[in-house]
Amino acid sequence: MAPAILTPGGSYPSSTNLLTLARSAVITASPHIARSVLVRRGGLGVTDAQKVTLGIIAAYVVVIAILWNVPYIRWVLWPFKMLVIAFHEFGHAITCVLTGGKVKSISLDPREGGVTHMQGGKNGLTLPAGYLGSSLIGALLTFAGFNINASKVASIVVGVCFLLTLWWGRRDLLTIGTVLAAIGLLVACWFIAKAEALRFVILFIGVMSSLYSVWDICDDLILRKVNSSDASVFAKRYGGSSQCWGVIWSIISLCFMAAGIVAGIAAFPQSAEQQREDSSKFIPTKF
């Protein structure tokens, strides 16, 4: 991943209570989910529906690893790779703005990676925010993938992000066509088994976003030892080695993914039938 380009300056603004906003969003999406979280205090048992979800996550890990490294077949991942590169750059950009900086431009290219040009902000936070931000987004999507209604909300956000990749990304026919096809897939999944198919797509994107961060760090800093990276810039400014920071960020990324899975198990114990019933009452579709 190409490093973020920064200039000095910036200060912190006041913070927002994200926990309160997240809790309100879950309650709005499905009151039944909120009641389940409050009632379920006896421990983290894994339901049959959750066992299926965990098996799908494990399968996705294997499938993505294969698709990522097999020539020609890996083009299947093209629109999703565009999206996770966008998540990486959004992490830089959002953190820059939150720490008092200004985003001058964002460019996305699945062949060469992305670049965010920023002015100001706190560099100690904006540099790791690309990897860690995309991993956090991946964890949140994995969390949402445990429940149909949560996946509906997440799919709207993902759809907007796909459109933003067309705005900032390389505008060739392959990119435009595959991204539009991915948006079409999201829309179609709303009408399959009361949107149950939608959560499997959200799960796929979440797992890929989490794994992409780890893979990119390892590929750039451990396997190929690319000099130009967020971690190498961070090491030059704050000490240590790029490999050391890459390993630390990889561990944090994996912790985010694990936390997303545990949170999904804790928050969404409903059976598949219960989820379909809830889905029929929240932004319902005819099928």
Score class of each variant (00 low, 15 high):
Trp168Lys: 00
Val26Ala: 13
Lys104Gln: 10
Tyr12Asn: 07
Ile106Ala: 04
Cys255Thr: 07
Ser210Gly: 13
Asp172His: 06
Ser229Val: 07
Ile137Trp: 10
Thr7Met: 04
Ile94Gln: 01
Val247His: 00
Ala188His: 12
Asn147Leu: 01
Thr7Leu: 12
Thr142His: 00
Gln119Ile: 10
Val226Gln: 12
Leu221Phe: 01
Cys255Pro: 00
Thr53Phe: 08
Asn17Gly: 05
Arg171Val: 02
Phe268Leu: 14
Thr95Phe: 05
Lys51Gly: 11
Phe87Asn: 11
Ile261Cys: 06
Ser15Gly: 05
Gly159Ile: 00
Ile27Glu: 15
Gln274Trp: 07
Lys104Cys: 02
Thr165His: 02
Ala58Gln: 11
Asp230Thr: 02
Asn17Arg: 12
Ile85His: 07
Ser228Ile: 06
Phe80Tyr: 14
Ser232Pro: 00
Ser228Asn: 12
Ala197Leu: 14
Val103Ser: 12
Phe162Ser: 02
Leu67Pro: 05
Trp78Asn: 09
Ile183Gln: 04
Gln274Met: 14
Cys96Thr: 15
Phe204Leu: 14
Asp278Gly: 06
Ala263Cys: 11
Lys122Asp: 09
Gln270Pro: 03
Leu19Thr: 11
Val158Asp: 02
Gln119Val: 11
Val157Gly: 09
Asp109Val: 07
Arg224Lys: 15
Ala4Met: 08
Lys81Glu: 13
Ala197Asn: 10
Val262Ile: 15
Thr165Pro: 04
Ile73Gln: 01
Trp215Ile: 00
Leu83His: 06
Asn147Pro: 04
Leu173Gly: 04
Val187Ile: 15
Ser155Arg: 07
His92Arg: 06
Ser241His: 05
Trp245Ser: 02
Gly55Val: 03
Ile106Lys: 08
Lys152Phe: 09
Leu44His: 09
Ser11Trp: 01
Lys122Leu: 13
Ala144Lys: 04
Asp220Val: 02
Ile85Tyr: 09
Gly113Thr: 06
Arg35Phe: 10
Lys225Asp: 05
Val153Ile: 14
Asp230Phe: 03
Leu67Cys: 11
Leu223Met: 07
Gly9Trp: 00
Val97His: 02
Val103Tyr: 12
Gly10Ser: 03
Ala231Asn: 08
Leu185Arg: 08
Ile252Lys: 01
Asp216Tyr: 01
Leu174Phe: 13
Ala2Cys: 01
Gly133His: 08
Ile265Arg: 10
Ala22Thr: 11
Ile217Trp: 04
Thr99Ile: 06
Leu185Tyr: 09
Ser135Leu: 06
Gly10His: 03
Ser30Leu: 08
Thr178Asn: 09
Lys286Glu: 12
Phe143His: 14
Ser280Gly: 07
Val179Ile: 15
Trp68Ser: 14
Ala181Ile: 10
Gly177Ser: 13
Pro128Trp: 06
Glu89Phe: 05
Ile251Asn: 02
Ala150Val: 03
Arg237Ser: 03
Ala86His: 14
Lys104Leu: 13
Ser213His: 01
Gly169Arg: 10
His92Trp: 06
Cys218Ser: 12
Ala259Gly: 09
Pro284Ser: 09
